[in-house]
Amino acid sequence: MTTPGGVRATARIVARGDGRGGTSLPVLEGEGPLALRRTRGSGAEARVMLVGAMSGPLGGDHFTVDARAEQGAGLRVGSAAATLALPGQDKAAARYDVRLSVADGAELHWLPEQLISAHGSDLYVGTRVDLAATARLVLREEQVLGRTGEEPGRLTSRLTVRIAGRCVLDQELACGPGAPGGWDGPAGLAGHRAVGQAVVARPEFAADPPTARMLGQDAAVMPLAGPAALVTAVAPDAQRLRRLLDEALASFV
């Protein structure tokens, strides 16, 4: 549970087609540690950078990021640095909610830097994506268990993707001390310290789904039961994980 003592902060992004082939950002509101900056976009796309003014979330904090790509919008969101989950003073858990919605004909690229679970931290991340039937999405999430040489904290991460109201992906990953048993065993992470997911959703996948394939030993492209695909990868470290996921994403072009 988060506590009243922690920081509550919400950042909001609304992107909208400007009617001239570009994307405007009628809402771009950061708060406290969640600062937002518009960066140079390319073509029809608007780019936003999440700029962490301080490392966090700490135990007890509750952050929310709400991004909406409305009709005609092309939105790309990244972050300036990795997010570091740290222990709070009162052992409370932290919570980070990400709410993404993409309207018909709009496209969102959600490509933040890694989430690092530092020793002693306890964070729940909930990412909920709602896509309209003809929305397009590229999403990448990476979890790194501990800074270099450090035991990880506790991290629970749930990712849900709905397309036209129907849930096509609901997946929770729990790891670190206190997570259900076997998380680091032969079925879970087997000692790997970086794990990530990428989701690509496109309406044309309904008729022409991507084929399942392996990328090396421990990464797979998996068509979901809906017009979307999930890439799951585990790797010894963040760099190798990033290479795997980006290689997978590049293969969708």
Partner: peptide
């Protein structure tokens, strides 16, 4: 619940 085990999924695909 939606708990997942990454290596069970990639292992099944392999």
């Amino acid at each position: 619940p939606a708990r997942s085990a990454p290596l069970l999924e990639t292992g099944a695909e392999a």
